[in-house]
Design a protein around this nucleic acid. Structure first.
Length: 376
RNA sequence: GGGGAGAUACCAAAGUGGCCAACUGGGGCAGACUGUAACUCUGCUGGCGUAUGCCUUCGGAGGUUCGAAUCCUCCUCUCCCCA
């Protein structure tokens, strides 16, 4: 993997660049659609490439390990082959699932014991076997195994958790270096900064992660319920320490505004379930603000779904039609909404990139932020 | 012609003297959703801008009672069975 910055903004920390992988280039800043279980829910791969123009998508270690399992994954020749996606893939390590499935987890120094949500069977994730699993999956970017602390989180817990994540990181990197890619393409290992909302912990963690010298770095444990000001403050601290010349990935973020503010603070990569999940639940993100498609006001509004939209669905269907599909629980509604939202998110980061290159990012960002929070 | 059952809020359906402005489900309306156990979850759904408050409701009209959706009388309508 190689990263080069094409243009850095003067008024902010924003930059645009290109990440080169064996599965193609990624123009940054980038938003990565989440495809947890070998599918971006309700969206075809052809739509992702031809219409939405996603440079890279996510997969999830936890889900793929449980189903279909690594035997199938190896037999398929990896996730790219399995799902018919030949662009880059990043897999999350399962660290977030350890957090979100808190009811069943048990953390030990060696790793996380958990019960499958599918059949209740018991499993153990370790910093090492999570690398093995992601080798089997064959993701271009593989994530370190971490604990994503909840919010609120007391300082003691946050500190202990961060140190646990750091110790897991040492084991993970060692195992990563000891093992090899299985399908002939290069894989990049990404360590994750933790530290909750505590500046001293974030500083310590960012320094620890930066010292590992990996090709890209990630920021985790944010957008878990903390005030956005805290998230932005942590980003500023962390990105002041993580190396400028390497991609920075803010995990799980976020709203369109979060993404713009993240870009302004030097983040290059984002992922979030919001465009797909909220889309399935009837929410549309647009350049003019958000729309709840279930609202009665769209009932007889036959105007284009989104006049400014870049996806084919925006011009092919009306607001009234999508409302009908969503309200009726029709699957096509989830598809149209997901495609629209992802296309919007990808438009947003592409536009940000163009504005950075044009030198007009900050003023554009500030005016966008004002509009995006409004409700249509 | 004979016998029987029933009419409850947008729909379906509980309740059969006070704890009922009325269970529950659907529908409707609104909100939430941030490294996806999520086509999910939450709230509201007679009126009064809020209410542990007031007002008007349970086919219609009377009546019994301190008190009725619940008991009585008559009326209207619906459904089922036998001829």
């Amino acid at each position: 993997m190689n990263f080069r910055i094409v243009k850095s903004d003067i008024e902010s920390q924003a930059r645009s660049g290109i990440i080169e992988t064996d599965h193609g280039n990624i123009q940054t800043p980038i938003f990565m659609p989440v495809g947890t279980a070998a599918t971006v829910k309700a969206v075809h791969q052809t739509e992702l490439t031809n219409d939405i123009n996603a440079d890279i998508i996510l997969g999830n270690t936890y889900h793929l390990y449980l189903r279909p399992g690594m035997e199938v994954m190896r037999a398929a020749g990896g996730l790219h082959n399995f799902m018919g996606w030949n662009r880059p893939i990043l897999t999350d390590s399962g660290g977030y699932q350890v957090f979100s499935l808190a009811a069943n987890r048990k953390l030990k120094s060696e790793g996380a014991y958990f019960s499958s949500h599918i059949d209740g069977s018991k499993h153990l994730f370790t910093p090492e076997n999570v690398v093995d699993i992601q080798r089997d999956i064959g993701a271009d970017f593989i994530m370190a195994f971490d604990e994503c602390t909840p919010y609120p989180c007391d300082p003691k817990y946050a500190r202990d958790s961060m140190h646990l994540t750091h110790s897991w990181l040492g084991k993970g990197i060692k195992h990563f270096k000891y093992t090899e890619s299985k399908y002939g393409h290069n894989q990049c290992f990404i360590p994750i900064v933790q530290g909750s909302v505590y500046p001293d912990l974030r500083k310590e963690s960012a320094e620890f992660i930066a010292a590992q010298g990996m090709d890209a770095n990630a920021i985790g444990g944010l957008s878990v319920g903390e005030p956005v000001e805290d998230m932005y403050a942590m980003l500023e601290i962390v990105n002041g320490i993580l190396p400028v010349e390497k991609p920075r990935y803010l995990m799980g973020v976020g709203t369109p505004v979060n993404i713009l503010e993240g870009i302004a603070r030097g983040v290059d990569m984002f992922d979030c379930v919001m465009p797909t999940r909220n889309g399935r639940n009837g929410m549309l993100f647009t350049q003019k603000g958000i729309m709840n498609m279930r609202n009665e006001k769209w009932k007889s509004d036959f105007s284009l779904l989104d006049h400014d939209g870049t996806s084919f669905v925006d011009k092919a269907y009306s607001k009234a039609y999508l409302r009908h599909l969503i309200v009726s629980g029709e699957r096509l509604g989830a598809q149209i909404a997901s495609i629209h939202n992802l296309a919007f998110y990808l438009w947003l980061v592409r536009e940000a990139r163009d504005q950075i290159i044009a030198g007009s990012f900050t003023s554009w960002k500030n005016s966008m932020v004002k509009v995006l929070v409004s409700r249509l």
